[in-house]
Design a binder for these strands. Structure first.
Length: 582
RNA sequence: CGGGGCGUGGCGCAGUCUGGUUAGCGCGCCUGCUUUGGGAGCAGGAAGUCGGAGGUUCGAAUCCUCUCGCCCCGACCA
């Protein structure tokens, strides 16, 4: 491809509004153009990378035995009502009504396709002989995000690979899940990403497994906790906090005192009002667990984790109590609850870290008042201790004696055991060999293709631009003739271009009549892995200059046989990134 | 949905508080000459309903009201 015949609008300056590296560089390198918040055009260069990621995903899915199909982005709203997800998605689901003749048809733009595919499978699969099967598609998804942001990382429209497995049993699902998990590992390895599979919250559908594939990056929206020692990794929602030594602190116990804290109902207000640290506060949250009020205690600077609380309370449904309930139970308005002397006697669950606290501050169960010098055992008792909070950086690892490190990350993939939620709602059943009917056991597996690109840039760039892994680079080789008006230079460049193209190498020839500096700057910016400079200096000695984008110094090669050498270098790199394939 | 910031040629910005010539600057673009290995120099040129609507005023990019859009923080995220 010739530079002058495609569209690569590079920019010297960063457009206003772009802040994180992937967004800035994708705009500056001419990969994308913004159409509105959360919607971007993929320009020729950006599209090429997107397609490369897409193809890697497709190849590995096929290799794992999944079968590609393509479903429509539009689907009838009734399908979403049948599973209750029209409501569950709320405004995130893009709904609209169109007119056909004299009737109105209500539709949704697919944010994911469990409903559509389960409906399809329900129509065409009825026997255990047809199972298991895994179907997938690569298609644009639509979600009305509350706040699109970070360039291509969170958009209202994005390219997703979504796969769905259908099995006759939970055991068989487990097999499929393992296969997909392994395929995901190969995909992200081939893409050259430093990724981490982490345990994720599997949601209300059974206690089954779910994993997210995360790329640690400073600007990631997710937080994961990772133990470098034993490899334990989980997202923040899921991560367990290892048990600490429970020796209570060895300090003299203060007297229990009631202090006035007018208007101070939040942790922040109370700690600044009383001049103490949030760590010295015990926050008391009133929940209703299956309709029954319970109190949950956590250290002031910790965040309660509702999933953990629900499991500890052995409840189906858990939600924060409403203000009336709180007032009834504690005898005080919201913000002044405490474990000492609640109005009604209720069960008290406490995070394990409460055991190590002494002389704490809690709400006094009275308006505008808190208690200081509160101590476990003397002033209040706890019915049950458990891990009830989100893990944070530095917490003990639940699997070994080491510590968890908190890291931000970009979620690029998610594998999930669904069970029979959708097959039951949409009557996708099969007959077994004894003529018994069962709902099909499902799994679903998603990859954000755009996020692969963003994550690659986010984790591989320098102050001058993108540093593409060969597998995702829009072009593998960039030819830079320094003087396009010189016949000899252009003859060599064009020949190289043609030879490399013929050898199946993706090559871009910068045939612009621009100064060397301009071309070098753009070369670094768009980050093509191998740069070949054809300049008068080298040409005099019958030589060309080559440089990998990630290296500092170029080296000279002979002009004769240059095409073969360059092609071989690229093939080697391709092989390196494919090495994960067994 | 709460908080904050910003809309001025293609891109980045100044001017707005304190209303007053033909609305500036850098980059980019076009023409010419010179230059030519890390974003060239000189000369000339094209390009803007100052996000939009309404209002105040002799006069509005500037003041007032409404509105649209974009970005960031938080909340939310099957």
């Amino acid at each position: 491809m010739l530079w002058t015949q495609t569209l690569i609008p590079t920019m010297k300056e960063t457009p206003e509004g772009a802040e994180i590296p992937s967004h800035v560089l994708m705009l500056r390198a001419g990969l994308i153009g913004q159409v509105m918040a959360g919607a971007y055009t993929y320009l020729p260069l950006g599209l090429r990378s997107l397609r490369k990621a897409e193809n890697i995903v497709r190849e590995e899915m096929n290799a794992a035995g999944a079968v590609e199909l393509l479903m429509p982005a539009i689907s009838p709203i009734s399908l979403w009502e049948q599973t209750g997800r029209a409501e569950a998605f709320g405004d995130v689901l893009i709904k609209f009504t169109i007119r056909r003749q004299n009737r109105k048809v209500r539709m949704a733009l697919g944010p994911t396709h469990e409903e559509v595919i389960t409906d399809l499978v329900a129509r065409h699969i009825s026997s255990y002989r047809q199972l298991p099967i895994t179907l997938y598609q690569i298609q644009t998804k639509f979600r009305n995000e509350e706040r699109p942001r970070f360039g291509v990382l969170r958009t209202s429209e994005f390219l997703m690979k979504d796969a769905y497995s259908f099995d006759t049993s939970v055991e068989s699902l487990g097999e499929n899940y393992k296969k997909m998990y392994a395929a995901y590992c190969r995909i992200f390895e081939r893409c050259g990403l430093e990724y981490l599979p982490v345990e994720a919250e599997s949601g209300p559908i059974g206690g089954d497994v779910s994993h997210e594939f995360m790329v640690p990056a400073e600007n990631g929206e997710d937080t994961l906790l990772h133990c470098a020692e034993c490899g334990y990794a989980a997202n923040q929602e899921r991560a367990e906090v290892g048990a600490r030594d429970v020796a209570p602190p060895d300090v003299p116990l203060e007297e229990l005192k009631k202090v006035d804290t007018p208007g101070a109902s939040t942790i922040e207000q109370v700690s600044s009002f009383l001049g103490c640290k949030p760590q010295n506060l015990i926050k008391t949250l009133i929940y209703t667990a299956d309709g029954k009020p319970i109190a949950v205690l956590a250290r002031g600077d910790h965040e309660a984790n509702e999933g953990k609380i629900r499991r500890a309370a052995v409840a189906e449904k858990l939600e924060l109590a409403d203000p009336e309930m709180i007032e009834r139970v504690t005898g005080a308005p919201v913000g002044f609850a405490g474990p000492v002397g609640t109005k009604e006697k209720i069960a008290i669950l406490a995070d394990r870290d409460i055991r190590q606290m002494a002389n704490s501050v809690t709400g006094a169960n009275a308006a505008d008042a808190h208690l200081t010098g509160v101590n476990l055992g003397r002033d209040f008792e706890v019915d049950q201790f458990a891990d009830l909070r989100n893990a944070v950086d530095g917490d003990p690892c639940p699997r070994c004696n080491s510590q968890l490190a908190g890291r931000h990350a970009i979620e690029v993939g998610h594998v999930f055991k669904l069970g029979t939620k959708y097959s039951e709602a949409l009557s996708a059943r099969f007959l077994d060999d004894r003529e018994q009917q069962h709902p099909i056991v499902m799994g679903c597996y998603g990859i954000g293709i755009n996020r692969i690109i963003a994550a690659a840039i986010e984790t591989s760039h320098d102050e001058n631009g993108i540093i593409w892994p060969v597998a995702l680079a829009p072009y593998e080789v960039l030819l830079v003739p320094l003087k396009v008006t010189d016949e000899q230079t252009m003859k060599v460049a064009t020949q190289l271009h043609d030879d490399l193209s013929a050898a199946g190498i993706d090559v871009l020839l910068d045939d612009r009549d621009a100064r060397a500096g301009v071309k070098f700057k753009d070369a670094d910016l768009i980050g093509i892995p191998l740069r070949v400079v054809i300049g008068p200096r080298g040409l005099k000695q019958g030589q060309l200059e080559i440089k990998w984008r990630w290296e500092k110094e170029p080296r000279m090669i002979d002009r004769d046989g240059a095409a073969e050498l360059v092609a071989e270098l690229i093939r080697c790199k391709r092989k390196e990134s494919d090495n994960s394939r067994v």
